[in-house]
Amino acid sequence: MDNLEYLFAANIFVWGGIFYYLFRIKRYQQSLQNDLDLIKEAVKKGSQDE
């Protein structure tokens, strides 16, 4: 009575869930960093034009 497939499935969900969440946070961080860089560049350009 080992039911290894259930143990395997539980592991897939736990690790899949943790890595998916980490990946989503990192992707969001990257997108915000791009936004920050763009805004800072626009602000810099704006102040140079003035």
Partner: peptide
């Protein structure tokens, strides 16, 4: 390995 439940009991260490 737990005697009555078998290997599936290892889910406890995540659950």
């Amino acid at each position: 390995t737990e005697q009555t439940e078998g290997a599936v009991q290892r889910i406890m260490y995540f659950h």
